[in-house]
Design a protein around this nucleic acid. Sequence first.
DNA 1: GTCTATATTGAGATAGAC
DNA 2: GTCTATCTCAATATAGAC
Lengths: 202, 202
Amino acid sequence: MTSATQVPTRREEILALAAGLFATRGFAGSTVREIADAAGILSGSLYHHFDSKESMADEILRAFLDEILADYHAAIAAAEGPVDALRRLVHVAYGALGPHRAAIAVMMNDWNLLVQQPRFAYLRDRADETERLWVGVIADGVAAGAFRADVDPRMIYRFLRDAIWVSVRWFQPDGSTSAHDLADRYCDMLLGGLTRDQGGPT
Amino acid sequence: MTSATQVPTRREEILALAAGLFATRGFAGSTVREIADAAGILSGSLYHHFDSKESMADEILRAFLDEILADYHAAIAAAEGPVDALRRLVHVAYGALGPHRAAIAVMMNDWNLLVQQPRFAYLRDRADETERLWVGVIADGVAAGAFRADVDPRMIYRFLRDAIWVSVRWFQPDGSTSAHDLADRYCDMLLGGLTRDQGGPT
DNA sequence: GTCTATATTGAGATAGAC
DNA sequence: GTCTATCTCAATATAGAC
């Protein structure tokens, strides 16, 4: 909403390059010199735009988490029943694989390292809020009889979350399948196991 | 077989400590000084046991990958049909979450960084062989009619692999559920969606 | 097997000119 | 907004004594 997404500023260009490096080489494995090289400037010049390497990762993750949390809230508000809500949440998550690919990779690879630093403590808050939203939807579905009752909603949430995010490692949204195709396939596979109207496994 | 697993040697003790650090702080985010501190020695003394920090990660990953590949082969050889084979593979993978927790965390967090180095090129070979085994089982199941035919075996494999490994981030095998409980739960959820004898989702 | 001591490199970051 | 030049510190790694 407030963040500029028109023609990218130099600052945003550099941030995107940094994100790409963090995503492929990890946060600690990327150097400010590599970032500067990618931007075609010298490492010292980076500090005209950013305070530190950490502040780059901070901005990358914050932008992603704020946007997706808002999208989650909107998805739940628009949903008709828990099954629809879960489908919408899955689509929101997969939809972020394109525009926020690098942020998701950073989140997957460097979460443990970053949350240990005080300045990244907000990551936990965002993660907790996200978990509350998803677990609420799943628990509602169990209560309503839409999902089988012999599952732990928290465990289900974690399976889903991880399976979705980690696909950032291999999924190329430009390929034959779009992110929403993938979301549909995943929901089909998932709901077949989550919904209760099937026989037992063979 | 050949590797000693009796009373751990000093070398093995240090390796386990290094693995723990790599797992929580990442490979690039861990320093040899931290490893030495954990072992109660000075950083220089580490080089009596190991050539380099890389060689530590090398040993950690190699031991894990060699063992689990052997277990995968054995699981497939012992299985009666594709569904049983898939269940067994899932159990082997989850079974590694206890003894190889740190190696799995390193694999999850630092895979991209490490495979870029020539000395870790073998990681790709192991990954390819693993994928062949799993995809073969899934494809056999589709051919035999045990799994629904509208799935891409490679995509299914990746969903499974990632969902299993990434649970190293939150699963504590010492808790109320064992790794094999988790494997069973996951298989139930999964096969309900993979096997074809259910109605459509609600 | 560990220590002392240190070499050497590369990292993040800064000051001021242009 | 970038460059030149450089500081400072921390990183991996080594040599030889104990």
